[in-house]
């Protein structure tokens, strides 16, 4: 239904680089990324409100650059500046119907307002509505516009948890009824609870597009790894090592021995913090990896204590409070960290 091909553009401080993805009819596609990575810019580009510097967007097989915005049948709902402030809810919902010179406007406005649960507030001005009610009215207006793709720009970020929960249910309902939704958010929970597929956006790039389960099982970005509680997530290069299946994982001038049969090249490495030990002297053991570093942070974790050691990259080890006292660990102290090559989980 929607094909985004190699979109690149720069607007002020925001940049999009070679964005590629496609969205099928009826999908709920969530673009997940931190604030300021260009998510809203991407939505406006999909809506035809901005022209990319390069690349093309095809909607229902047609290049959107050749179509008028008002004929694209894509509806955008912004995080703020949502409803027209000088019009009441009824007039807001009627706006697209009047633009398209539709018949039976009154009946349609009431019907869409019923669907989104805002029918009792039709006479109200936007300034008197709650955040959730504003979003409901905006969704009714999008339905009235006849669009079958809704672009939602952080629609839940300003809402209390109860309203957000109710609206999520409404989004799912609209999606079930055939509306294709592209939803941008910085909230991991929102993405997991709504998406059929997720695109992870980092620094203007769509770095990973997959189903939620696959995205979070095998993260390809520190951002996602952080969400799922993975503390040692590294991106580097896998090279031949000194033995069979023993390879070297190189990053930032550091070489980590890993036990894997995955082929060489760019790869991701995860090490669970409880697989990493800390010692005051180089440890003689079966572990292949020993690195000298300086303790950067000591913080209580849900279970045990997280000790962050800077070895050129930050590595987190979880230890007991007894070990912390016995080893006399403190911030700034030089220590050794040790872990086995087989503790390193490698994937492409």
């Amino acid at each position: 239904m929607l094909d985004v091909k190699n979109i690149s553009m720069a607007v002020g401080n925001f940049k999009l680089s070679e964005i590629n993805f496609n969205v099928e009819k009826g999908e709920y596609f969530v673009i997940l990324g931190l604030s300021g990575v260009g998510k809203s810019l991407l939505l406006e580009t999909i809506a035809g409100l901005r022209s990319p510097d390069s690349g093309k967007i095809f909607l229902r097989g047609k290049d959107i650059a050749k179509e008028k915005i008002q004929n694209l049948n894509i509806s955008i709902v912004y995080q703020d500046s949502v409803l027209f402030p000088h019009k009441n809810v009824y007039e807001n919902i009627a706006y697209p119907l009047k633009s398209r010179k539709a018949k039976g406007i009154k009946e349609k406005v009431h019907r869409f307002a019923e669907i989104t649960g805002i029918a009792d507030k039709l006479e109200r001005k936007p300034s008197t509505l709650s955040g959730g009610e504003i979003q409901r009215a905006a969704l009714a207006r999008s339905l009235a516009s006849g669009s079958d793709i809704f672009l939602l720009d952080e629609p839940l970020s300003a809402l209390d948890s109860k309203s957000a929960f109710e609206l999520r249910a409404l989004f799912r309902k609209l999606n079930r009824e055939g509306i294709t939704i592209i939803h941008v958010t910085h909230s991991y929970e929102e993405a997991v609870s709504l998406a059929t597929r997720i695109g992870i956006m980092e620094e203007g790039k769509l770095v990973h597009v997959d189903t939620p389960s696959e995205i979070f099982r095998h993260p390809r970005s520190e951002f996602v790894a952080h969400f799922v509680g993975i503390k040692n997530f590294l991106k580097g290069n896998l090279k031949e090592g000194s033995g069979a299946q023993l390879k070297e994982f190189a990053l930032n001038g550091i070489s980590i021995s890993v036990l894997t049969d995955i082929e060489d090249g760019e790869a991701f490495l995860m090490i669970s913090p409880d697989e990493i030990s800390i010692s005051n002297k180089p440890e003689e053991s079966s572990s292949r990896n020993h690195f000298k570093g300086v303790i950067k942070d000591i913080a209580p974790a849900r279970i045990g204590i997280d000790v962050t050691v800077d070895i050129g990259i930050d590595i987190v080890s979880v230890i007991t409070s007894n070990s912390l006292n016995e080893l006399d660990l403190s911030i700034g102290k030089t220590v050794w960290i040790n872990f086995k090559a087989s503790s390193c989980k490698i994937y492409k």
Partner: peptide, 27 residues
């Protein structure tokens, strides 16, 4: 007047002239 109101109006099927006279000018 936030430009987003005008952009929203365009995606709601309004022509640029209608967006100007019904959104930008009144606001």
């Amino acid at each position: 007047v936030p430009e987003r109101y005008e952009k929203t109006a365009l995606t709601m099927g309004a022509s640029p002239a209608r967006a100007f006279f019904t959104i930008s000018l009144p606001l």
